[in-house]
């Protein structure tokens, strides 16, 4: 898991042939190939299709004996019910606030740190880079308990005294949802790799022109790594829109801070009756849709290089 040379992003497009095959195999090969891909694709889509169908079932469908799979009288109104009967707008707003904040923070911290690690020499650089690479290996479950209490006992926050006692600290604020994610080791690593590939001459020329260090970073360097920023944005957005365990842990008892996945999960008690299942499935559909839309819009950014990052 060493560095990747960003400039050597592999070309994609032309289909590969692994070897010259006999004629009959050349005819059957594509058939098998597309059959396999289609079968896989069908499996990929099946649960989503099942969800959309399920969302349309009426109580009459689920209370039939045996229950009907295909809705007899599709209940399109269920999507309006989702917004009327569930705190969907709160969840939605929280998802957006948290995801946008974290994504913005991660892009800022990753570009800054990545740039410093790539373009400056200073004592301790190697150590910090090792930390960035090494910290990625630490699984998140290790941090849940300690970070929970670090936020809980944050001095002078949320009614706490200087020793962190007396109040509830940062728990119960948006900060508890965002702060543990403002830096992403992976993002710093990714940006550092990108900045390394930018020639030093540019920096040098700018310095000669008398540009200050911060101005060079903002006006010259940042525009050059736009593709990397876009990639990081997309990854951060998807990851944090979908983040579940941490948000659930700190907002379990604070409905006004819950995001879409967390809200739907914690309201499971409301969906136990059979005639509530359709509402649950519709809510799930609504929780998934925004990410899919963002992905389809930005899909072109998903070039091969992202998936090979850290590989070679």
């Amino acid at each position: 898991m060493t560095a990747v040379d960003r400039t050597g992003a592999p070309a994609r497009g032309a289909p590969l042939r692994i070897a010259v095959a006999p004629r009959w195999r050349r005819a059957i090969g594509p058939l098998v190939k597309y059959a396999l891909l289609s079968l896989g694709a069908l499996l990929m889509i099946l649960p989503f299709a099942d969800m959309f169908i399920g969302a349309l079932r009426s109580p009459a469908d689920v209370f039939a004996s045996p229950p009907r799979y295909w809705p007899q009288d599709p209940q399109w109104g269920v999507y309006a019910r989702v917004f009327r009967e569930l705190p969907m707008t709160t969840w939605f707003a929280n998802s957006i606030i948290v995801t946008v904040t974290i994504t913005a923070a991660q892009v800022a911290t990753s570009t800054m740190a990545g740039y410093a690690l790539a373009k400056y020499e200073f004592g301790g650089r190697a150590a910090i880079f090792r930390l960035v690479v090494g910290a990625q290996m630490f699984p998140f479950f290790l941090f849940i308990i300690p970070i929970f209490f670090i936020l809980r006992f944050a001095p002078l926050m949320g009614g706490n005294d200087i020793a962190g006692q007396g109040g509830s600290g940062l728990l119960g604020t948006y900060a508890a949802l965002c702060l543990p994610f403002v830096v992403t080791w992976y993002g710093v690593f990714l940006m550092r790799q990108f900045f390394v590939s930018i020639p030093d001459d540019l920096l040098e020329a700018a310095r000669l022109d008398g540009a200050g260090e911060y101005r060079i970073f903002r006006s010259i360097m940042l525009p050059l790594v736009k593709p990397a920023i876009a990639t990081l944005t997309l990854f951060s957005f998807v990851y944090h829109w979908n983040e579940f365990i941490w948000t659930m842990t700190v907002t379990r008892a604070a409905p006004e801070l819950q995001t879409l996945p967390v809200g739907i999960y914690l309201l499971q008690g409301a969906f136990e009756d059979l005639d509530q299942k359709a509402l649950q499935q519709a809510a799930l559909a609504v929780s998934i849709l925004p990410v899919i839309v963002v992905f389809l819009c930005l899909q072109r950014l998903f070039v091969a290089s992202e998936f090979s990052s850290g590989v070679k």
């Binding site: 929970f148 809980r152 949320g158 009614g159 109040g167 509830s168 600290g169 728990l171 119960g172 508890a176 842990t249 700190v250 379990r252 008892a253 604070a254 409905p255 914690l266 309201l267 499971q268 008690g269 409301a270």
Partner: peptide, 23 residues
């Protein structure tokens, strides 16, 4: 009114209390 799922109620009460989010 705040709904807490039956299966999670005790857990929510106890962690909510740690977080100062008690009803």
């Amino acid at each position: 009114y705040q709904q807490i799922s039956y299966g999670d109620y005790l857990q929510t009460v106890l962690t909510g209390r740690l977080a100062g989010q008690s009803p």
